[in-house]
Design a protein around this nucleic acid. Structure first.
Length: 435
RNA sequence: GGCCCCAUCGUCUAGUGGUCUAGGACACUUGGUUCUCAUCCAAGAGAUCGUGAGUUCGACUCUCACUGGGGUCACCA
């Protein structure tokens, strides 16, 4: 049977890190077996919907190369859910409820899981699941590779179809996964507690239930809690803007919750698909560790061609983009080996575009002698190293004075090359201003 | 609080009963290359495998308890 997986976000905002990872794993799971990857928009909560979110989600997914084979929108399938809900009522697995008070939380953690309306035989209202008593609900989780079970007495009568005619997740997920012939249902750990509800709905609806797997939560390295929109920066786009390459972010995220037997760490998307193995899923929650992301990003930057890297720099720095192409490439080559994030580029190249304010305290004791000899040397097109030797200067001090005079800071790209790019005239101007 | 998941270096992990006095990567420290930073190379430090029982000739690997961490308890997904 053909493997079919889906990524099913709700259009309530941008794609976040956890969603990206879920999508990646679902994609790899399907593509490793030459199967189908489906994108399904779960927009059944009208109140929470954010306009433009669907397009944003799609664009982001495409940036990572996670292309889908089929696309569905739940709000266009309302009739199916309604029919399914009514069928469940007819067969005695669900019931209508017209309760006004909807918020169980407001009543505290009630121990009464059975809804008061379940035996009223109402004929309108919301449709709720009639959870049977004394049954063991069990499934095999393909991520954790173990059976997980519940006593049905601990499961509440969840709402399946809201009174506005829209389904809840609990109904929609089962109807759709069955209808779309999903073979592997992969989702976040936060869904694990409501899985017994879905097990029941799947059973009552009939048909072949997909295998179910729950991914670990990604924890914040600061708080140790699940990554949250409030506290942490979690949106994929935030990482892409001026900072990280999509390939690098994707590579980083794939290692949060999955590892191959040989512990290899660098994978392109297609390499990941090829090497993907369900046994590589982790059981424990990983922490989002920025330093590792930075390292991976550095690796990818170094693998880029000068031409490709150059165009990335153009995107984030307009002054750079205005330079003539030859000069751009020279700068790009100097930066390629010394940045981790794209945004580091702006810091390191600032002196190319504006004259620095030089703090003379940074200059050495002999700076005047150094600089005047350098000026002469540049005017005569001489190799500065010869001047160092002739005068018995200390190499480090000599070049540091030059570096400070030209750039104003201690850490820079190689200074000789930088002067070439800056130009004789401008360089001499900067040096003279300090004498 | 009920229910559920989890537990190997600071972090991500390899490890499926003996080859583990626990391996790799990031981060960290040191040395080399070098005009600084970085890259690259080399070396080092870093985990009595959460605790306690049990099974076994033998446990990081199996069982149980405890502790700790996480998640979840909506007509939201």
């Amino acid at each position: 049977m053909k493997v079919r997986t889906r990524f099913a976000p709700s259009p309530t905002g941008f794609l976040h890190i956890g969603g990206l990872r879920t999508a990646l794993y679902a994609y790899a799971l399907a593509k490793h077996e030459k199967g189908d990857f489906i994108l399904r928009i779960e927009d059944t909560d009208q109140k929470r919907e954010v306009s433009g979110a669907v397009e944003a989600l799609q664009n982001t997914l495409k940036k990572f190369g996670l292309n889908w084979d089929e696309f569905y929108v739940q709000s266009e399938r309302l009739e199916k859910y309604k029919k399914a809900g009514e069928l469940l009522v007819k067969e005695g697995h669900a019931f209508y409820c017209d309760c006004k008070s909807k918020n169980a939380k407001a009543e505290g953690y009630s121990t009464n899981l059975k809804d008061p309306c379940r035996d009223k035989n109402l004929t309108k209202g919301a449709i709720k699941l009639k959870v049977p008593e004394g049954k063991t609900l069990i499934y095999f989780d393909f991520v954790h590779q173990k059976e997980i079970s519940w006593d049905s007495n601990t499961v509440y009568d969840a709402t399946l179809l809201k009174s506005d005619g829209y389904p809840t997740y609990h109904l929609a997920v089962a109807v759709d996964d069955l209808d779309m012939k999903i073979t592997h249902l992969l989702r976040g750990h936060d869904w694990l507690p409501s899985t017994p509800i879905h097990l029941l709905v799947f059973e009552y609806l009939g048909g072949k239930r997909p295998e179910i797997g729950h991914l670990t939560d990604i924890l914040s390295s600061e708080t140790g809690k699940k990554l949250s929109k409030r506290r942490d920066s979690v949106f994929a786009e935030q990482f892409l803007d001026e900072e990280y390459l999509p390939e690098a972010l994707l590579n980083f995220v794939m290692l949060l919750g999955w590892a191959p037997k040989d512990n290899r760490e660098l994978f392109t998307l297609s390499e990941f698909v090829e090497n993907f193995d369900i046994k590589g899923f982790q059981d424990a929650n990983p922490r989002f560790f920025r330093e590792k992301l930075d390292w991976i990003n550095g690796q990818y930057i170094r693998q880029l061609s000068d031409e490709d890297l150059n165009s990335k720099f153009q995107d984030i720095n307009s002054k750079f983009a205005d330079l003539e192409k030859k000069k751009q490439l020279e700068i790009t080559k100097l930066l390629k080996e010394r940045i981790k994030k794209l945004s580091d580029f702006n810091l390191l190249t600032k002196f190319f575009f504006e004259r620095p304010v030089v703090d003379k305290k940074l200059l050495g004791e002999n700076y005047k002698e150094h600089l005047s000899k350098i000026i002469k040397g540049i005017e005569d097109d001489r190799d500065l190293m010869e001047i160092v030797k002739e005068n018995n200067f200390k190499t480090g001090d000599f070049f540091m004075d030059l570096r400070i005079a030209i750039t104003g800071v201690k850490f820079t790209p190689p200074i000789n090359e930088s002067i070439d790019i800056l130009g004789k005239e401008e360089s001499i101007l900067r040096l003279k201003s300090l004498l």
